[in-house]
C-alpha cells in the first residue's frame, strides 16, 4: 500500500508537512506562504526556562501553532488523534494507509535513523509524513530531507512514543475537509498582522524585537557571570537554535522575508517587497552574528569579537526588526 504522493523538501518540518499533505489533497501552497499565513516568525528568550541547563531562545512560535493558525485562516479541517498504546497508534496508522491516505505525525528525532547521527538529540516535536508501507517498512516523507526514505516499524513506534518533554503520545493528523473557496488576501494580511503585533506589542521584554534586545543585554555579561567555558557553551547553543535544522537560515528570517516577497506579488504591494529586503538585511546580520559567534566558539577564546561586540550586533538587529514590524503592523492593521 502506497499513496500516490509527491514529496517536496522544505526548510522547516511543520511547514513542509502541511505543504506536502495539502498538495496530496489538491491544494498547492509553497513553504513561505504557510509560514507567513500561519504567523510562524517570533522571538523569545526565556532565561528561567532551561533545557540541559541552558536558557531557551527561540526564533519561532511554539511547535504546532503554525499548523493551527494556518488551517484556521485557510479553512482546512484537520483531524488529530493521540493514543495511549503503541498498538492502537500503529493500527490506526495502518488503517489510514490501507485507505491510501498519507498521515502526518509527531516523532522524536532521536529514533529516526535516516538522519545524520549528529542531529539526533531528543527533540520530540519533529513532524513527518508516513505515506505507505512496503516489505514491513514504513515509507516516510521527512520534509527536511531531499528525498523520501523509510523506517522500520519498531523505530517508528519508539519515535512516536518517545518520553520526555513534550511526549508525542503517538499523535497523528490529516486533513478531512478542504475549503472550496478561501480568501487568500485576507489570510495573508491576518498572518502579517498577528506576527507584527506579537513582534512589537507584547508588554513583556522577553518577547518579540524587545526580547532580542534583552538577550543582547544578558549576553554581554555571560563571560563575567558564567565563566568563559560556560559562556561559550551558551553561545554555541544560541547558534544551534538559530542555524540548525529547520530554520532556513538566520532563525527563520529568510523564510519570512521570502513570504513577504511572495505576498508582495500576490497583493501587488511594493512596500511589502521593500520590507522583505529590509528583513533580508536583518537576516544577514544574524548570519554575521552566528559567523563571529562560531569563531569565538572555535577558538575557545574571545579574540575575534568580544561578547559585548556580539551583543551590539543583536541590538542592531533588534532595532531593525522593531522598525520593520512596526511598519508591517501599520500596513496590516486597517486590512
Amino acid at each position: 500500500m502506497k499513496a500516490n504522493f509527491t514529496h517536496r523538501q522544505s526548510a522547516h518540518c511543520e511547514n513542509g508537512v502541511i505543504s506536502n499533505l495539502l498538495r496530496f489533497h489538491g491544494l498547492e501552497f509553497d513553504e513561505p506562504m504557510i509560514f507567513g499565513i500561519g504567523s510562524g516568525l517570533f522571538f523569545s528568550y526565556l532565561p528561567f526556562v532551561k533545557l540541559n541547563g541552558i536558557p531557551v531562545a527561540s526564533y519561532r512560535i511554539w511547535p504546532g501553532h503554525i499548523f493551527k493558525r494556518f488551517s484556521n485562516r485557510i479553512g482546512v479541517k484537520i483531524e488529530r488523534k493521540k493514543f495511549s498504546t503503541p498498538k492502537a497508534a500503529m493500527d490506526a496508522l495502518d488503517n489510514m494507509l490501507d485507505k491510501g491516505q498519507p498521515v502526518g505525525m509527531l516523532t522524536s528525532v532521536f529514533y529516526l535513523d535516516y538522519l545524520p547521527a549528529a542531529y539526533r538529540f531528543h527533540f520530540n516535536a519533529h513532524n513527518i509524513i508516513v505515506f505507505g508501507k512496503e516489505n514491513g517498512r514504513y515509507l516516510v516523507s521527512d520534509p527536511v530531507m531531499e528525498y523520501t526514505t523509510d523506517i522500520s516499524g519498531e523505530d517508528l513506534i519508539r519515535a512516536r512514543f518517545a518520553k520526555g518533554m513534550p511526549e508525542p503520545s503517538g499523535r497523528m493528523y490529516y486533513p478531512v475537509e478542504l475549503p472550496g473557496k478561501y480568501d487568500l488576501e485576507k489570510a495573508i494580511w491576518t498572518g502579517i498582522k498577528q506576527t507584527s503585533d506579537h513582534m512589537t506589542h507584547i508588554p513583556v521584554p522577553l518577547f518579540g524585537a524587545k526580547g532580542m534586545k534583552y538577550l543582547a543585554k544578558r549576553l554581554r555579561y555571560w563571560p563575567d557571570r558564567l565563566g568563559d567555558r560556560k559562556a561559550i557553551q551558551w553561545l554555541g547553543n544560541l547558534i544551534r537554535m538559530q542555524e540548525e535544522i529547520g530554520t532556513g537560515g538566520a532563525g527563520f528570517r529568510f523564510i519570512y522575508a521570502a513570504f513577504l516577497d511572495q505576498a508582495s506579488t500576490v497583493l501587488k504591494n511594493e512596500t511589502l517587497f521593500d520590507l522583505s529586503q529590509q528583513l533580508t538585511k536583518s537576516g544577514d546580520q544574524l548570519r554575521e552574528f552566528a559567523y563571529y559567534a562560531g569563531r569565538v566558539c572555535k577558538n575557545r577564546t574571545s579574540d575575534t569579537r568580544t561578547f559585548s561586540e556580539l551583543a551590539s550586533m543583536l541590538e542592531d538587529c533588534s532595532q531593525r526588526e522593531q522598525q520593520i514590524f512596526s511598519e508591517l503592523y501599520q500596513l496590516s492593521k486597517p486590512k
Partner: peptide, 20 residues
C-alpha cells in the same frame, strides 16, 4: 560537516534583484 552525505538542507537566498 556532520551530515554524512545524507542531508543537504534547504535555505532561502536572494537573487540579484532581492527576490527569494
Amino acid at each position: 560537516n556532520l551530515n554524512e552525505g545524507k542531508l543537504a538542507k534547504l535555505y532561502y537566498a536572494t537573487d540579484a534583484k532581492g527576490h527569494y
